[in-house]
């Protein structure tokens, strides 16, 4: 399974839920707290956290593209 992560900085509301859920994948900018993507193709062991981050985001600013390894 591969998982690609994209973030929409325009939609982001700086809630920081993504950083709480998956601190190795997301960070926040210093000045305004907008999401900063650390890893756009996180390893499988992070996938569960990243899915939770995407679901929890109150601005729907995290987009995931999941593909089976075979595809």
């Amino acid at each position: 399974m591969t998982l690609k992560v994209e973030v929409d900085e325009q939609r982001c509301v700086s809630a920081g839920h993504c950083v709480t859920s998956a601190p190795d994948v997301f960070d926040q900018r210093d000045d305004d707290g907008v999401v900063h993507l650390l890893d756009g193709a996180p390893p499988e062991r992070r996938h569960e956290q990243v899915r939770e981050a995407a679901l929890l985001c109150p601005a729907a600013a995290i987009l995931l593209r999941e593909r089976d390894g075979s595809a």
Partner: peptide, 11 residues
Amino acid sequence: WNSARGLRRAR
């Protein structure tokens, strides 16, 4: 107020 990172630290 205008302190997203600070808020998360205080959580």
